[in-house]
């Protein structure tokens, strides 16, 4: 936020109070609009929380009353026990964690090869990665399913991990970052007799924390919020992830919006907490990769 600002015209000579007044009126206006947008962005979450503490009769009757008079905290234990929520948490965490670790490892290795090593056909293979990135997931969805079926992986978490693990985006992202690291560092290490893996592990990776962090967040979010793959692959309730779990809950408790809101709140808590703690990385990761992509 330290860079220059459109509306903060420091260098413009100011002609007395008139301009000062206009300026502060303008920033008041800006503030007002920002606030309204913020309310619009947050309102659905507030409605969700508030609804989760009401009952079927009051949720729509006084939906303007966002702080319920008699908060019904027992909606939460009810939701928690009516479907195996703890299991959903565990399954989602497990899948997201393994997917992320796998993606980061394989992508970093490949990105290092593309950015810092020489081998015949390098650029052609890299072009293949880029081209693959252009192809929508839906194209691969059906053959992937057939493949998993033939490998006997229907109704397992392995299938969910494998379909996400090799997305070329990670390779692309890290390669672009590795390119910005000067070669002098690795060259001198090479002269000292370091192996390529040592250079990769001890020099390049520590310098790439920002990019790795971005990839971790992307991959984590992507896997955590995945809906279509669990929908395709999982039949057994005990294997469900949060996203299919919440859909399942929605079907089970059709008209009980207060319980559905409680379940949705439960499903969102982990990701919102992680987001609030790591928001800097989320937002900076998005804005930088967004630009470079």
């Amino acid at each position: 936020m330290k860079q220059s600002n459109v509306l903060d015209n420091k260098n413009i000579p100011q002609n007395g109070n008139n301009i000062k007044l206009r300026k502060s009126l303008f920033s008041l206006f800006t503030y007002f609009i920002l606030l309204i947008v913020a309310v619009v962005m947050v309102m659905p979450f507030v409605w969700m929380l508030s609804g989760s503490l009401k009952d079927a009769a009051t949720i729509f009757q006084d939906s303007m009353n966002l702080i319920p008079d008699n908060p019904r905290w027992d909606n939460y234990p009810k939701v928690w026990t009516s479907v195996p929520f703890a299991m959903f948490y565990w399954n989602t965490t497990k899948v997201a964690f393994l997917t992320t670790v796998g993606t980061v490892l394989t992508s970093a290795l490949a990105a290092y090869a593309f950015a810092k090593l020489e081998f015949p056909g390098r650029d052609k293979i890299f072009f293949l990665y880029i081209a693959t990135m252009m192809i929508p997931d839906q194209v691969t969805m059906i053959p992937q399913f057939v493949l998993m079926r033939d490998l006997g992986l229907i109704n397992t978490h392995t299938a969910l991990i494998l379909v996400k693990l090799f997305h070329p985006f990670g390779v692309f992202l890290l390669r672009q970052f590795f390119l910005t690291i000067p070669n002098e560092l690795s060259d001198s290490a090479r002269i000292d007799g370091c192996s390529e893996f040592r250079i990769f592990w001890n020099i390049i990776l520590p310098l790439s924390k920002a990019a790795l962090g971005t990839l971790v967040i992307f991959s984590l979010l992507n896997s955590w919020n995945d809906f279509i793959n669990p929908l395709i692959y999982l039949s057994d309730q005990s294997l469900f992830t949060l996203q299919v779990g919440i859909r399942y809950f929605q079907q089970l408790y059709g008209a009980d919006y207060h319980l559905i809101m409680a379940a949705t709140t439960l499903s969102l808590i982990p990701i919102i907490i992680v987001y609030l703690f790591a928001q800097k990385y989320f937002i900076e990761g998005i804005s930088t990769t967004g630009l470079k992509g």
């Binding site: 992986l153 109704n155 397992t156 392995t158 294997l239």
Partner: peptide, 10 residues
Amino acid sequence: ESSNDANSQT
């Protein structure tokens, strides 16, 4: 995966 998930098909 397959050995942990007692309920999974494999």
